[in-house]
Simulated scan of single mutants.
Amino acid sequence: MLEDGLHGVPAGHTASVVTHLEMQAQAPQRPEADLPLTLERITTPDPDWYLGLFRKVGAPWLWFGRLTLTRDALLTVIHDAQVHVYAVREAGQDVGLLELDFRHHPDCELAYFGLTESAVGRGAGRWMMNRAIGLAWAQGITRFHVHTCTLDHPAALAFYQRSGFVPYAREIEIVEDPRLSALLPMDAAPHVPLIGR
């Protein structure tokens, strides 16, 4: 446990507050806009396609988790029958990534949930969350959980709460900056100061 007060972060690292949230009963669907979106499950995602969409959605928020895996380790995860990967599409283009992880059933983790910058702010997040909640609870789960951090979109935490998730734990995460380890380009997430080694 950290003591009260400020704690130094090593150069070349980022620090964020991670909030864990859960839903213990299916939340009602929220009103949504009529959008020209489709949701397609990709049962055996090509790893290059997956990583391309992962970066497209997540680079502005320093998503790096899948980028640290070897190709074989990534395939083990995304080809697991209990890991459901979905692409949100608009006019034939991928504009969102949804990943539901049922490997610890009856829990389901909302492992990844995000939209490209062009799709943000039009109601697509609510559209996608309505479907995520329906798909997760259709599998007979008893708990749906997710985590977000202070490096994520500034509206993410409030969005999850409006969607029916309740915060239950908080952590501090300090990791090597993925821009300095070449997992993401140096110009990713310009809102997060890059403090070199």
Rank of each mutant, 00 (worst) to 15 (best):
D187N: 14
D187F: 01
L135W: 06
V192S: 01
L115D: 07
A169D: 15
P193F: 02
E40G: 02
R162S: 10
G121Y: 05
R131G: 01
A156D: 10
E117K: 00
A132G: 10
P106D: 06
T116G: 12
W61R: 03
R126D: 03
Q93I: 06
E90W: 09
A15I: 05
A189P: 05
V146P: 01
A87C: 11
W49L: 11
A81N: 12
E32C: 07
Y50H: 12
A169F: 02
T44K: 13
D187E: 14
A11H: 13
P28F: 00
Q29W: 00
V88W: 05
Q24S: 10
M186R: 15
V192F: 00
L115V: 10
G58T: 08
L110P: 11
E40C: 07
A189K: 06
I141M: 02
T142W: 01
Y160H: 13
M128A: 11
E40L: 08
H147P: 00
G92L: 03
L97E: 11
T142R: 13
R66W: 05
E117T: 14
A189M: 04
L37G: 02
Y112S: 08
A119H: 05
I133G: 08
A189L: 03
L62W: 08
A27M: 03
L35A: 04
V57F: 05
G196Q: 12
L21F: 00
E3Q: 14
Q26Y: 01
L97H: 12
G96A: 13
A169I: 04
S163L: 03
E99L: 08
L184Y: 13
A158C: 04
A189E: 07
V9P: 01
G52F: 02
D101V: 06
R41N: 05
Q26P: 15
R30F: 00
T43V: 14
Q26I: 02
D80I: 03
L67N: 09
E40Y: 00
P47G: 02
R197H: 14
P45T: 05
E109H: 12
R66H: 13
D34S: 12
L184F: 08
A124N: 07
G65N: 11
P31K: 06
F113T: 12
L67R: 10
L183V: 12
E117C: 04
L74A: 11
Q29D: 09
T116V: 15
V146A: 09
I174S: 01
P28C: 03
G121H: 11
F165D: 10
N130M: 10
P60S: 09
G123P: 12
A132V: 07
E171S: 13
V88Q: 11
P36F: 02
T150L: 07
C149D: 15
L74I: 10
R170T: 15
L115W: 08
E40D: 12
L110Q: 09
R122V: 14
D177L: 04
M129V: 11
T70R: 11
V88M: 15
F144S: 10
Y168G: 05
C149Q: 10
A169C: 03
I133F: 01
A119S: 14
A189D: 09
A182P: 01
E176M: 02
C108W: 04
S118H: 09
R66S: 08
L115E: 09
P47W: 00
L151E: 07
E22L: 03
E171G: 09
H7D: 03
G5T: 00
F165C: 08
L67W: 07
L74N: 09
V192D: 02
L37S: 03
R162I: 02
A124Q: 06
